[in-house]
Amino acid sequence: MRAPAVVVDDLRKRYGDTAAVDGVSFAVEHGEIFGILGPNGAGKTTIVESIAGLRTGDAGSIRVHGVDPWTDREALTRILGIQLQESRLQAKITVREALELWSAFYDDPLPWRDLAARVGLAGLLAARFSKLSGGQQQRLSIALALVGRPQVAILDELSTGLDPRVRQEVWQLVREVRDTGVTILLVTHSMEEAQHLCDRVAIVDGGRIRALDTPVGLIRAAGAGTTMRFTPSAPIDLQSLRELAGVSSVHADGGGRVVVQGSEDAVVLVMSSLAAQRAVPQGLHVASGSLDSAYLDLTAAETAAETAEEHR
């Protein structure tokens, strides 16, 4: 069996009196899009910068394809590409020069013209870095992270400053890159981004992992699955709905409306059960749970637990 692409084991890092990262462990599988989600100052950037060898942890260890990023930077740079948060290039370098320069760093780079086209910079090859918009600089930065055909790519605040259309394109690019076998670590504070892109998400807060699961798993664990609301056209047996697989709660609100919460799969079962009972769900409204609510539930629960601990 192949070892995971990235293994972080009990990483700790202090700055002065504050623990930025306080015992974080996780493993990222090959070809996975792994999200690190959390509020500002949660320790996300410290974690990925430790993986990239830009910081050395006070304790713990990290392996990227077996390479120790803290002692073997040279080997690491050949397998890992990173798009750093708020990182600028030389003010007067053109897009073309930057891509050519970065291509020269690697033995077998991606064809940079294709890459430029895929991040929507084909028409801006002659533009200087300082003349690019924030979103264009961001896209160039993404291209440079990928040009060396990394086996692991770290994208820190990928879609900050991108307009919605470009963001969709960049997400598509990330999926395509993953489909070529690249493992991707995605740092974000956008729930939407994590939910759309990530296979698994670690929710980080206060330097610790609060939860680690698939987006769906996180939503389910937080009890914020799919919610169906409808008014049955005929009386129905609520208990029969409760017994369906994937249904977590069923109750009738005052106005004859029924609210069913459960997994996505439960929706179909509820529908067929209603059909069997010859009831039509009128005014049907189905809302999928979002990572947003799961995240808020999880971090709120932690905060409450911590507060309780402090009062003890």
Binding site: R73, T77, S87, R88, F105
Partner: peptide
């Protein structure tokens, strides 16, 4: 100064060139 503050040096640390 500009290379250091703008993160050019940092960015190069993540490449084989340094």
């Amino acid at each position: 100064f500009a290379y250091r503050e703008g993160g050019v040096l940092r960015r190069l640390r993540t490449t084989p060139v340094g």
